[in-house]
Amino acid sequence: MRSMLSKLFARPSSQADSAEARPQPLDYEKMVTLDAEELAEQGIVAAYQRLLPQLKNHVARPALISEEVEANEPSYKVQFQGNEFLIYSGSDRDAEAESWGRATYYFFLIVNSQLNGSDVRFYAINSGNDLGGIFLTPAQAESAQRSIERRTDWPYIPSLDGPWYGQYH
């Protein structure tokens, strides 16, 4: 009798309450494949062009970006809103290793700086050749982290701090 009464008078839980409490896995179908090596090897503009249809869902007028390749030095730079970002320079001692991290960081910086005022951010998934990106709200990213066991698989916002460049570990 008591259990029947408690069921009758129990506060119904809303779908929103149960959805927030339950960790939500990532929808990998929405992930954009990037590959940090390709980004670092003069592929940032091409990747940005592939991302534009999705970015336009969140930004009315995405910014233009351009790249500069200097074969003599060699170097690879990206220009965005009056800023120039050095991705690769042959004069750097650890240029190749750091270029993957720099390319990842600057690509996500370019996209996320345009999302100010939006409820989503562009999060990195994995790194290196397996790098991808996905638009998530911070709450969705946190929920996904609760559903993913390995920290290196969590969505993250890249940083310039090597060797992990913002990836959880």
Rank of each mutant, 00 (worst) to 15 (best):
V32W: 05
V32K: 08
T33D: 13
T33V: 14
L34C: 15
L34A: 14
D35G: 10
D35R: 06
A36Y: 07
A36T: 10
E37D: 13
E37Q: 12
E37C: 06
E38V: 11
L39G: 13
E41S: 15
Q42Y: 04
G43N: 13
V45H: 02
V45Q: 12
V45C: 10
V45I: 11
A46I: 01
A46C: 01
A46M: 01
A46V: 07
A47I: 11
A47Y: 14
A47G: 14
Y48P: 08
Y48K: 09
Q49G: 06
Q49P: 04
R50S: 15
L51R: 13
L52C: 14
L52A: 15
L52K: 15
P53I: 10
P53T: 12
Q54Y: 04
Q54E: 13
Q54W: 02
Q54L: 08
L55H: 11
K56D: 06
N57G: 08
N57D: 09
H58N: 01
H58V: 01
R61P: 02
R61K: 09
P62V: 15
P62G: 15
P62L: 14
A63L: 10
A63Y: 07
L64K: 10
L64C: 06
L64V: 10
L64I: 11
I65L: 08
I65M: 09
I65E: 05
S66T: 15
E67S: 12
E67G: 07
E67V: 03
E68S: 00
E68P: 00
E68T: 02
E68G: 00
V69P: 05
A71I: 08
N72H: 03
E73S: 09
E73C: 04
E73D: 08
E73I: 12
E73R: 06
S75T: 08
Y76E: 03
Y76P: 09
K77P: 00
V78W: 07
Q79T: 11
F80V: 06
F80K: 01
F80T: 04
Q81Y: 00
Q81S: 06
G82A: 08
G82W: 07
G82V: 09
N83I: 00
N83C: 03
E84Q: 14
F85W: 12
L86A: 10
L86V: 13
L86R: 03
I87R: 04
I87M: 07
S89F: 02
S89C: 11
D92F: 05
R93I: 12
R93G: 10
A95K: 02
E96C: 07
E96H: 07
E98M: 05
S99H: 03
S99G: 08
W100C: 02
W100D: 07
G101P: 14
A103Y: 06
T104I: 04
T104M: 13
T104H: 05
Y105P: 09
Y106L: 11
F107I: 05
F107E: 11
F107A: 06
F108Y: 09
L109K: 13
I110K: 06
V111R: 00
N112H: 06
N112I: 05
S113T: 13
S113P: 00
S113C: 04
S113G: 09
Q114G: 15
Q114R: 12
Q114E: 15
L115W: 04
N116F: 03
N116L: 05
N116A: 04
G117K: 00
S118H: 00
S118V: 03
S118I: 03
D119C: 00
D119S: 05
V120T: 05
R121V: 00
R121H: 03
F122T: 02
F122A: 02
F122D: 05
Y123D: 02
Y123F: 06
Y123P: 00
